[in-house]
Design a protein around this nucleic acid. Structure first.
Ligand SMILES: [Mn+2]
Ligand SMILES: [Mn+2]
Ligand SMILES: [Zn+2]
Ligand SMILES: [Zn+2]
Lengths: 147, 147
DNA sequence: AGCAAAAAGCAACATAGTTGCAAAATCTTG
DNA sequence: CAAGATTTTGCAACTATGTTGCTTTTTGCT
């Protein structure tokens, strides 16, 4: 019975993720992590406020996302408009140290943002004098679900 | 006398740029274009409001930047935080059609954003099903002036 | 100079994000 | 498992950012 399995699995994962990050397990944190786990694409602050319903205060959402970023649970994704989007870090991101060397994809049709975890960011040959510490790549187009 | 030359040069360039774009030549447009021409790096809306002093209404700055983007005079640069930055389009961007296939660089030290006009965005090999229409690359690190 | 069109300024509003503090929930430890 | 210490939440108030409609001013053109 795979349908019944998903929910307990999530709750388990959520609790261990929070504990590993030294964050106390609260209703808002569980709810917001759940949203990320079930959604596949990235979420904006606004998305989360809407999906979480009237359940939580706006301030709580801000502080929760901030805590998750600091602990390496989620990462931000730069966009051309000025709406920050957040997505789960897949693996070994820890407090203060993100290792997100993958490309992000924004679909013009469904307006979803996806982490392409298997597509690593390329090395960029820079002019003399510039030192690269991080490379962010955002590809825009049409995703595989939208054609 | 190179020092004296720069200002008239700018004014000339500004007038021709505006005329070419079918925009009437107004004080705010000239001032804001001047800021871009003398600054090298990209500017945020806030930068411009500050640098233009108390001279213009906030709304005017918004509408001016919007007009410049639409006419292909400036382009937006995605950032990791949610502040849009704007930079001059170098060449053949026209109304509604930007051709900015260059990489952007954000310096962690001076916090300036530069267009690396000579560094073209790489092709990204995407998973089956994804269609790329545009690629944005933002490199973060230390710029040549800051070491 | 005089007219029509465009832009700027103003006010009012809407949305987004921050901060301090008191109340509530969570964690710890005996 | 109860009590106290600690953390988190919700609330209120505030700042910042962005938008819209309308009136006045400026610009381009004849
Ligand atoms: Mn990602
Ligand atoms: Mn650029
Ligand atoms: Zn899509
Ligand atoms: Zn620098």
């Amino acid at each position: 019975m795979p349908a019944k399995d998903t929910l307990p699995d999530f709750e388990e994962k959520i609790a261990s993720l929070l504990k590993k990050s030294h964050l106390s397990v609260t209703e808002s944190r569980r709810k917001i992590l759940h949203l990320f786990l079930e959604h596949a694409g990235a979420l904006s602050h606004g998305d989360i406020e809407r999906k979480a319903g009237e359940k939580f205060d706006r301030v709580t959402v801000y502080r929760t996302l901030q805590a998750f970023v600091e602990k390496g649970i989620i990462h931000t994704i730069p966009t051309a408009d000025n709406s920050i989007r957040y997505a789960l870090c897949k693996d070994d991101c820890s407090a203060g140290h993100h290792h997100d060397h993958h490309v992000h994809f924004l679909c013009h049709r469904c307006n979803n943002t996806y982490c392409l975890d298997d597509v690593v960011t390329p090395d960029i040959k820079l002019p003399r004098g510039y030192v690269a510490e991080q490379v962010e790549v955002l590809v825009e187009g049409v995703c595989k679900n939208c054609r």
